[in-house]
Design a protein around this nucleic acid. Sequence first.
DNA 1: ATACGACTTGGAGTTGGCTCTAAGTCAATA
DNA 2: TATTGACTTAGAGCCAACTCCAAGTCGTAT
Lengths: 131, 131
Amino acid sequence: MTIAQACKTLNLSADTLRYYEKVGLIPKIGRTESGLRDYTSADCNWIEFIKCMRNAGVQVESLVEYVKLYQEGDSTHEARKDILVRERDRISAQVEAMQQTLTRLNFKIEKYETKMKNAEPLLGDCAKCSS
Amino acid sequence: MTIAQACKTLNLSADTLRYYEKVGLIPKIGRTESGLRDYTSADCNWIEFIKCMRNAGVQVESLVEYVKLYQEGDSTHEARKDILVRERDRISAQVEAMQQTLTRLNFKIEKYETKMKNAEPLLGDCAKCSS
DNA sequence: ATACGACTTGGAGTTGGCTCTAAGTCAATA
DNA sequence: TATTGACTTAGAGCCAACTCCAAGTCGTAT
């Protein structure tokens, strides 16, 4: 699969795919005889995984670390799991904070909707975010 | 309240507070006779709100827009509500994506824990993220 | 009086994550 | 054979959101 096709299936730009490969976020992609990248479906699955993690806010750095360990083989089993656990906990905390923000936003939106024109001076008085 | 005290209560750096004021993310802070910033509790409440939104990933740009409208008075009531709704929907979608990522991560972590050393080649085969 | 520490400013620098540019290679088509 | 279009590379540029720096101004303690 050419890079153009990979872009379409993954909905990522060619620049981004090349960037991901360059920084080690995805393993080296195989080449055709003339030197063009040739994405396998395994490559695409991996990139799909990476994309999912990136969308959730996992840093490129962490994923690079994970890929590196993965390439070092079985001995890195524990370390890899630790990264996943760490990132899961990070995302989990982030989701909780966001849910509190949602509660707060909904409270404010409701005030706007019930035409309480004086909602704004109370801005800070509604439920506070924990952070 | 001096900027140092505001930093402590809000857990934000002085640079960040000044930056927020400069770009219009928080209204102009009053000054003492000698020109030092003097934060009121209303200022702190506002900043607390801003901080909550920023923590949830709301862009500075959007918040600046909101503050600007707020300062223009009652006529911007609808426009302000629209911003809040827009950002709520954005956060909401993001939370959903993150929850799917969490599911995926938990699946992988479990595989690591049950000592399925061959978990990695299946990387892309577990539940896909929608995005 | 002078030194100190907390503040002020404008503007430069940093980080993360892309995104774009320029110059070149290659295969296929007119 | 010449041109077209998709690819290649290294490296520069860009954007958001801070973060740091230098030079200067206060009020207070020695």
